[in-house]
Amino acid sequence: MLEIQNLTKKYGHYLAVDHVSFTVPGGQVGILLGPNGAGKSTIIKSIAGLLRYEGGVGIEQMPARTLEAKRIFAYVPEMPAMFDALTVREHIEYVRRAYNSPITDEEVEQLLIRFELEDKQNKLGNELSKGMMQKVSICCALAICPKVILLDEPMVGLDPAAIKELKEVVLELKAQGVTVLISTHMLEMVKELWDVMFIMEQGKIVGTFTREQAKDTDIEELFFRITGGGESE
């Protein structure tokens, strides 16, 4: 479960996020959407622990800042950053050891195969394309065996085969009871994945929909109905 409680973030006198609260239950996929400047990126970075903020973030009913919570939380940033001198395989091994992850060697091999990195595993971080770095970032996050995972624009830069695999992985995580939050502007990419959708505008949640509430209404129609057709971030 991921719980956001009265999260507020100011930059000087500018209120970027205004007492935002929402919950993604365990085993569900939440989608965070919002027009440019809505505060979506601030929410994402706050959840990931990259910004100071007021309010609370809970990971499996533990404060997000605690070591126990961090051990079961994974984050795939929009702009992945690699260690120049580590290979693809060493990145995964580094995360595996840092988190004392129970992932097996066989499971690591399967991740590399699924994301077509098996023949790239000895490449250094500074030799990778944006798409390759994105795949490595996803594999590192999955290597933690998280209970809660945050994916920020995860499909940007991925090839069609990797997008297909990532969608399958998200559904597998959901089936395993993992909580997933995806921040994206690629609405068509998450149509078959989402369980609950949060729409932000001007620093607030202005719309929350579950799949049951939406019924047969298209996700894009719901988004544009709330935002008035603004460009998504």
Score class of each variant (00 low, 15 high):
residue 122 N to C: 03
residue 49 G to P: 14
residue 131 G to K: 06
residue 132 M to H: 00
residue 43 I to V: 15
residue 55 G to E: 14
residue 219 I to D: 01
residue 104 T to R: 14
residue 4 I to H: 06
residue 65 R to G: 07
residue 212 E to Q: 15
residue 188 E to P: 03
residue 109 E to N: 15
residue 127 E to H: 11
residue 73 F to Q: 11
residue 82 M to F: 07
residue 11 Y to G: 04
residue 110 Q to P: 00
residue 27 G to Y: 04
residue 132 M to P: 00
residue 138 I to R: 05
residue 43 I to L: 15
residue 119 D to K: 15
residue 100 N to Q: 14
residue 130 K to C: 03
residue 64 A to K: 06
residue 189 M to I: 00
residue 217 T to R: 14
residue 123 K to G: 07
residue 192 E to Y: 02
residue 94 Y to C: 09
residue 79 M to A: 12
residue 124 L to Y: 14
residue 78 E to C: 03
residue 15 L to S: 13
residue 157 G to H: 08
residue 57 V to W: 09
residue 198 F to K: 04
residue 35 P to Y: 08
residue 233 E to N: 14
residue 131 G to W: 07
residue 175 A to S: 15
residue 25 P to E: 13
residue 65 R to P: 00
residue 123 K to A: 12
residue 15 L to E: 12
residue 141 A to D: 01
residue 92 I to P: 01
residue 108 V to H: 07
residue 145 C to R: 15
residue 83 F to E: 02
residue 136 V to Q: 00
residue 165 E to F: 05
residue 208 T to C: 10
residue 187 L to P: 03
residue 54 E to M: 11
residue 191 K to D: 10
residue 45 K to C: 06
residue 142 L to S: 04
residue 67 L to S: 12
residue 183 S to M: 01
residue 22 F to C: 05
residue 158 L to I: 10
residue 182 I to W: 00
residue 72 I to D: 04
residue 148 V to K: 11
residue 107 E to I: 03
residue 71 R to V: 04
residue 98 A to M: 12
residue 200 M to P: 01
residue 41 S to M: 04
residue 42 T to L: 13
residue 79 M to D: 11
residue 207 G to M: 07
residue 144 I to E: 01
residue 136 V to K: 00
residue 9 K to R: 15
residue 54 E to H: 14
residue 5 Q to M: 11
residue 95 V to P: 01
residue 225 R to P: 01
residue 65 R to N: 13
residue 201 E to W: 01
residue 126 N to V: 05
residue 16 A to M: 09
residue 224 F to K: 04
residue 98 A to T: 04
residue 104 T to A: 11
residue 173 L to Y: 06
residue 47 I to S: 11
